[in-house]
């Protein structure tokens, strides 16, 4: 037993190392004064960060990405609330099929989503812009939002809302006074996850943004130029740090929500 456990533990730790290898290397190169991304490291510098800070295109890309991510997160979460509530609270014919269809982007190759949307938008004569990216991002964020929100809604006792209604509240005020505060951690967690997905999404942004840069498309365009790469490493470091902070926040809210409902901590991942 002990032997087997040790072996598996060692393997699991090695696997974690494999998962984290790129993330560990990222700051090493971001602070490395050498212009070539290779070992051995040359020396410590923060030049790449200042270069990044001074880059105007990058700032436009950042502003675009933030706008897209915030819009996509809010819209996907709003639509997700509708779908999650419908699926956890009501029974109706065709529910499985409709939910399956809404969740489809989760398993559809992204290139197909992007290409088909692009073809239709071009065909309809729609000008490609940040708006068209938001359109696509809401679609691919929505399934994740629904997955998170459904666990939040389903861990909620149906009687709670009925009790509020029974005590004289209207359907809407019962939702506002009881359900909403209780699923709030799930909503925040959904917003954060959707924001993170959108911020990092490349393919849809690449094809649907027209000539507007977003962070991932800007990064992609710069990866071809070796002399830009140290700066991209610096940018990556910032983004990874940001992602980890957002995820930790999301995780915190998720656990707090579960704790409040008396649930166990592993719930909600699944």
């Amino acid at each position: 037993m002990k032997g087997q456990g040790r072996g598996l533990q060692a393997y699991a730790l090695l696997y974690l190392l494999f998962l984290y290898a790129p993330i560990i290397l990222l700051p090493l190169f971001a602070f490395n004064s050498g212009t070539i991304i290779a070992f051995p490291l040359q020396g410590f510098t923060t030049d790449w960060f200042s270069q990044m800070w001074a880059n105007a295109t990058l700032r436009t890309a950042l502003a675009n990405s933030l706008l897209i991510a915030v819009s996509a997160a809010v819209l996907a979460t709003c639509l997700g609330i509708f779908a999650a509530r419908a699926s956890t609270r009501f029974e109706f014919p065709g529910k499985g099929g409709m939910m399956g269809f809404i969740l489809l982007p989760m398993v559809l190759p992204e290139i197909i989503v992007a290409m088909s949307l692009l073809v239709v938008l071009l065909g309809a004569g729609v000008q490609l812009s940040i708006l068209t990216v938001i359109l696509g991002h809401v679609l691919i964020c929505m399934p994740y939002a629904i997955a998170i929100l459904s666990t939040a809604f389903s861990s909620l006792d149906k009687s709670l809302e009925e009790a509020a209604y029974d005590l004289g509240e209207t359907r809407w005020s019962a939702f506002r006074l009881v359900t909403l505060p209780l699923v709030m951690p799930g909503i925040i967690s959904s917003l954060l996850i959707s924001f993170t997905i959108s911020l990092d999404e490349f393919i849809i942004a690449f094809f649907l943004a027209g000539n507007q840069p977003t962070l991932p498309t800007y990064i992609f365009s710069q990866l071809r130029f070796p002399k830009q790469i140290p700066m991209i490493m610096a940018l990556g470091t910032v983004l990874v740090a940001l992602s980890i902070v957002l995820l930790a926040l999301g995780e915190y809210f998720r656990r707090r929500g579960n704790a409040r409902m008396g649930g166990n901590p592993t719930r909600g991942f699944l």
Binding site: S159, A163, D166
Partner: peptide, 10 residues
């Protein structure tokens, strides 16, 4: 109503 699960607002 007193609900089976009591439905106490947590």
């Amino acid at each position: 109503m007193v609900f089976q699960s009591y439905a106490i607002f947590p």
